[in-house]
């Protein structure tokens, strides 16, 4: 069951993308996210798509892994396409392009978590969110919140699935609002229980929100090369 929830799970590979600094990868995700929706021309979209494809190849992600990771979004894509077909008949191509842009955004996010360990992501989040200290927001809290979310989202899906199955086994009808409500309540209750246990575990393992992560992130030659390359790409697209 667990293997169905593989989105964004890190895989240890010896690739150029894996070796990039986590901070720069996070900044790239934001830049590419904006780019994927800001590019106007069709040639620009084509170049950007080829670029994303090359990133997939460079990260050494297999086709089967890519498909497995994108499968949970299949229904969203179908839903979006249906909406365009039903409500914007004259703009079907535009709809397909929007879904394509959305797909690119998902792949880029996927590449970040596929090539970066949670630990490095957390360090990067901590380092990048340092300016928030001005507003009394503690970077370590943000970082740990992200890591806990990454850790427990699949757990939530599994609990949802198990509860659903046990309800169905006792003849529940999940088309009824009453039973849907019950399903949601049971899963939420279990997740609150886990949150309470996790809170105990954090205290027990001496969690300190004021602690600064000592891990040092350093740029390597690929980071500098990537900056040059990305700037050239942006110039070409525009």
């Amino acid at each position: 069951m667990l293997r169905r929830f593989t989105f964004g799970q890190y895989k240890d590979r010896n690739s150029v993308i894996h070796s990039l600094d986590a901070r720069i990868k996070m900044i790239y995700v934001i830049v590419f996210g904006i780019l994927s929706f800001a590019i106007k021309s069709k040639s620009g979209i084509l170049i950007f798509s080829l670029f994303v494809l090359s990133l997939i190849v460079l990260s050494k992600m297999s086709l089967s892994e890519l498909i497995r990771n994108l499968m949970p979004f299949y229904f969203i894509f179908v839903f979006l396409l249906l909406m365009y077909i039903l409500f914007s008949r004259n703009q079907l191509v535009l709809g397909v392009i929007y879904i394509w842009r959305f797909l690119m955004l998902i792949i880029i996010s996927l590449l970040l978590t596929y090539t970066t360990t949670i630990q490095n992501l957390i360090v990067a989040i901590e380092k990048l969110s340092k300016p928030l200290k001005i507003f009394s927001i503690k970077p370590r809290n943000i970082a740990v919140m992200v890591s806990v979310a990454v850790r427990f989202v699949p757990v939530m899906f599994i609990r949802f699935d198990k509860t659903r199955e046990s309800m169905l086994a006792r003849l529940a009808d999940l088309r009824k609002i009453k039973h849907i409500k019950l399903l949601v309540m049971v899963v939420l209750e279990k997740m609150f229980g886990s949150a309470s246990n996790l809170s105990d575990a954090l205290q027990s393992r001496l969690y300190n929100e004021n602690l600064a992560n000592k891990k040092i992130l350093r740029f390597n030659k690929y980071d500098y090369l990537s900056i040059v390359f990305i700037l050239i790409l942006i110039v070409i697209i525009y």
Binding site: R151, G193, A201
Partner: peptide, 30 residues
């Protein structure tokens, strides 16, 4: 403390990172 619900005790997704969690809090060098 090794909890009864040990699954909820794991904070990080990667094994070695989770084992390191308490050590970071003890402010031990990388």
């Amino acid at each position: 403390f090794v909890f009864q619900n040990f699954e909820d005790q794991l904070v990080y997704s990667i094994v070695e990172e989770d084992v390191a969690f308490g050590l970071e809090n003890l402010e031990i060098g990388i």
